[in-house]
Simulated scan of single mutants.
Amino acid sequence: MGDAPAGPGPSDRVFAPEALAAGDAAMPLYRRLNAHLADAIDRGRLKPAQALPGERDIARDMAVSRVTVRKALSGLVEAGLLEQRQGSGTYVARRPPRVEQALSRLTSFTDDMRSRGLSTTSRWLLRELSPPTAREALHLALSPTDRVCHLRRLRVADGTPMAVEHAAVPHAILADPAAVEGSLYAVLEGLGLKPVRALQRLAAANLGDEVAGLLGVAAGSAALSIERVAYAANGRAVEFTHSFFRGDTYDFVAELTLG
């Protein structure tokens, strides 16, 4: 591990010897140091991409052994909070934006991210007219001989891949898949078929190689698999979408009442 110097600023007192005094005395020292640094990262006292002092310097400043420092840092690397660069040092990991989304509101990805001040882009993976899958035909009340617009894209917020989204819209509603450049819901609203309600099913999933690669995470990473059927005001099913959301970027929240 390199001895990269820490930059000036709020991290200066992170490595003070008294920083560990508030921890649980029964807890091993390396775990107290691990928890202390994790809290400093969470509170922004250590910034993304900031270099940490070297092991020797942390050990000296906090009056602990280098073995204690090494074990604490190793745990933070495994947790994804720190990253180690060969020959360079240890740095606070760049963390993807964390999004909290209410399950009670029907919004498009574009509108949802923009409402949080995040810039959005999309990378098209597929735009074509083709027969519906069995599930698409079922949810959209189509026959196997009908056609649907298949719209598959990688959704990105502030430069971070967030979701892979595959939408199917009946050809009778959307004649040309190329008509969708940004928000699908905006296009449907322009056609007089704005989605006003939806049924959504969430399930835990582990990502396969292809989707994991698109989202920039390891194969097998945890994700949320979400299927949604959206309906216009006249009750017509206008969209069936199956998406995979990165498990480390999304919290879905529902408000519950008793009775």
Rank of each mutant, 00 (worst) to 15 (best):
G208N: 12
M113N: 02
H150R: 14
L151H: 09
A233F: 07
D146S: 08
L151T: 07
A178E: 15
C149M: 06
L52V: 07
D146G: 03
V217N: 08
H166Y: 12
D248N: 01
A38C: 01
S11R: 08
R98W: 12
V164D: 03
V156M: 05
I173W: 08
D251I: 15
W124I: 14
P97E: 06
P170E: 01
A4D: 13
R147T: 13
E128A: 13
L202W: 06
T241M: 09
M113D: 00
P177R: 01
A93D: 02
A186W: 07
A22F: 09
A38H: 00
M1Q: 12
L142S: 02
G235P: 03
D39R: 15
P144F: 04
A22T: 12
M113C: 04
P170H: 00
A254V: 11
L118I: 01
V77H: 06
E239K: 00
P53D: 01
R31Y: 10
P17M: 00
V69I: 03
V99N: 00
L52H: 02
G190M: 06
Y250L: 15
L106D: 01
G192Y: 04
D57K: 06
F109T: 02
A168W: 00
G216M: 03
A167Y: 06
P8Y: 13
S130F: 10
R31N: 10
T160N: 12
E189V: 09
I41C: 05
P5E: 10
A141M: 13
G220V: 08
D176Y: 05
A254P: 09
R135A: 14
T110Y: 11
E18V: 13
A141R: 15
H139Q: 14
R116N: 04
V69M: 00
E227P: 02
P17T: 01
R153K: 13
A22W: 10
A102E: 14
D57E: 11
A4R: 15
V217P: 11
Q101V: 14
A205Q: 04
A19F: 05
Q200E: 15
V67R: 15
S221E: 09
R147F: 13
A6S: 14
Q200N: 12
T249E: 03
E100H: 09
A254K: 08
R32M: 04
F252S: 01
H36P: 03
D57W: 03
F109N: 03
L33W: 03
E210V: 09
P177D: 04
D146Q: 05
T121Y: 09
Q86L: 14
A93V: 01
V148M: 10
R56H: 08
E100P: 04
L73F: 05
R201K: 14
G54F: 00
R114E: 15
H171K: 11
A16N: 06
Y30L: 10
L258G: 12
A203H: 08
S143H: 14
L126V: 12
R66L: 09
G7D: 11
R116A: 02
D112G: 11
A102I: 05
G235T: 05
A40D: 04
R228I: 06
T120G: 02
S221R: 03
G190P: 09
C149I: 03
